[in-house]
Design a protein around this nucleic acid. Structure first.
Length: 489
RNA sequence: GGUACCUUGGCCGAGUGGCUAGGCAUCGGUCUGCAAAACCGACUACGGCGGUUCGACUCCGCCAGGUACCUCCA
């Protein structure tokens, strides 16, 4: 492909041509979940978006190292340093060891990711597994004079840093504005500057997860893990760093500051941020209590849901909007996507029934080029899906003989269509999976062949009975000119 | 309060200075023993008020409404 890939870079607020640092290779870091509770659908959206991005980069032939961390340490509640550690708090609540909490929710997270058919990252590093790297980085930042220690806690000196580097560049803000916007913090604060944040936090007697450090027993601040692990696995400067938009202002801003202060290099070339999933216009979040758990969605067991939705219908729903747009979550929207998704899958099956002829009235290359145009424009999956639906129409017309296609073109169409749908968009035809399904499908075929015979001898009462009985089990039958078609509703 | 962003047809959602995605729903028609599916066709929108322009939904300004961030959250 000689067409160019463009990526919207939060740093410059523009779409920029993607030029990897090392030709042919891409290093990408995505902020993963904090595993002290179940991930909700909003979290899933971000990881599904980056899965699309990962898949497309792979498709383009890049050798990609995709790093997505698991945050399993630290994370104070509130910006004051007297907050509780999330893991310790949750551990107390569930009467478990903090690492039991971590294990439980890490496994649950991976299950959910698998259900949504996301590819596993190349490396999934944990914060607790990289304490020494984080301590090392903090030492380096201290040595360079961008941090200070007070009573075993190490703070990053934002004001000193901002004299040399643009601190608020990721959100296009000036330091003065940020200072102005900082709220009054109640109580005493040992930090020198209002914007300073902790790199290392001293352990209190009740702190459960703590490690020895040059500053005594403690645990790492939230932001340092990504700086340390990104550097370790992807280098001082790497290609893409991603995460949800909610991380942009604080987490990523501080990450840049730490890395820059330590390495004196911009850590990342392209910053990518995915937008929020909303419910009735408001952001889905843990604290707001409007989160949906994946399982509630699959089963429909939630007051706001009319019914359950399959994982692939949900994935498709998410891919139908652009990753930088908010996406509003509703029954109607979900149902529309579910039907569209089924139509797409049906077209894929119909593809197998098309017979080649001696000339083509459709231009397969149109599909290919339009898909690349869409995806190269900042991974525009909704436009790609629109193109796919134009071809759903073509595929149906081909099956009905209204259009014709040669064998080489048909082979190309099948290959292209499936590459897009399954490899790039990462969808799965849930209906055609597994051996049990195969048996079911054979049984249904058998019954429908009997029905065909009944119809041939005009025994419509029998043929209707077969159809109606199948309908009772949820099998929808459709007659076709050359036989039949069915699906499980 | 500060800083950004958003407002598209019944719903969801792309996008562009002129050629007006797509999905779902709805209404006609074709096909069918009936039904469904499929196909064909219809419905042609861009918050309000000004401005720039030959021309704006797309650019600028103001207003209204909304959202996010500034505090843990993808």
């Amino acid at each position: 492909m000689d067409s160019k890939l463009f990526i919207y870079n939060t740093l410059t607020r523009k779409k920029e041509e993607f030029i990897p640092i090392n030709p042919g290779h891409v290093g990408i870091y995505v902020c993963g979940p904090t595993v002290y509770s179940d991930v909700h659908l909003g979290n899933c959206r971000t990881f599904i978006s980056f899965d699309l991005i990962y898949r497309y980069l792979l498709h383009l032939g890049f050798k990609v190292r995709y790093v997505r961390n698991i945050t399993d340490a630290g994370h104070l509640e509130g910006d004051r340093d007297e907050g509780d550690d999330k893991f310790a708090k949750k551990a107390k609540l569930e009467q478990l060891e903090p690492m039991e909490i971590v294990q439980k929710y890490t496994l649950a997270f991976r299950d959910v990711m698998r259900i949504f058919n996301t590819l596993p990252p190349s490396i999934e590093p944990t914060a607790t597994g990289h304490i020494s790297e984080q301590i090392e980085m903090i030492k380096q930042i201290l040595e360079q004079g961008y941090a200070y220690e007070i009573n075993g806690t190490v703070y990053f000196d934002v004001e000193k840093y901002s004299k040399e580097y643009p601190y608020g560049q990721l959100t296009n803000r000036k330091l003065e504005d940020l200072l102005e916007g900082t709220r009054e913090l109640g109580g005493q604060d040992e930090k020198r500057g209002r914007l300073d944040f902790a790199l290392w936090i001293t352990a209190k007697p009740e702190t459960l997860m703590k490690w020895p450090s040059p500053w005594g027993w403690g645990f790492p601040g939230w932001h340092i893990e990504c700086s340390a692990m990104g550097r370790k696995y992807l280098g001082d400067t790497f290609d893409i760093h991603g995460g949800g938009m909610d991380l942009q202002a604080t987490h990523h801003t501080n990450e840049i500051a730490q890395s820059q202060a330590c390495n004196h290099k911009a850590p990342v070339k392209y910053w990518m941020h995915t937008n929020m999933l909303t419910v009735n216009g408001a952001r889905m979040s843990k604290s707001a209590g409007n989160g949906f758990l994946p399982n509630e969605l699959f089963t429909g067991n939630h007051p706001l849901l009319d019914k359950g939705y399959s994982p692939m219908a949900v994935r498709f729903f998410m891919l139908q909007s652009h990753y930088r747009s908010t996406l509003d979550f509703s029954n109607e929207a979900l149902q529309a996507s579910e039907k569209g998704f089924q139509r797409l899958m049906a077209a894929n099956r119909i593809l197998n029934k098309i017979k080649a002829s001696d000339k083509s009235t459709v231009v397969v290359n149109d599909l290919t080029s339009r898909i690349y145009d869409a995806m190269n424009d900042d991974f525009n999956s909704p436009v790609a899906i629109a193109v796919l639906f134009d071809w759903v129409r073509n595929i149906n017309s081909l099956a009905e003989g209204k259009e014709s296609i040669t064998q080489p073109d048909l082979d190309l169409l099948k290959q292209t269509f499936r590459t897009i749908v399954f490899d790039i968009l990462g969808l799965v035809d849930e209906q055609s999976e597994g051996s049990k399904q195969e048996l079911t499908s054979n049984l249904i075929d058998m019954l429908l062949n009997m029905r065909l015979e009944a119809k041939a001898r005009k025994d419509f009462s029998t043929s209707d009975k077969i159809r109606d009985d199948l309908a009772k089990f949820g099998v929808v039958v459709r007659d076709r000119k050359d036989g039949f078609d069915w699906e499980i509703s």
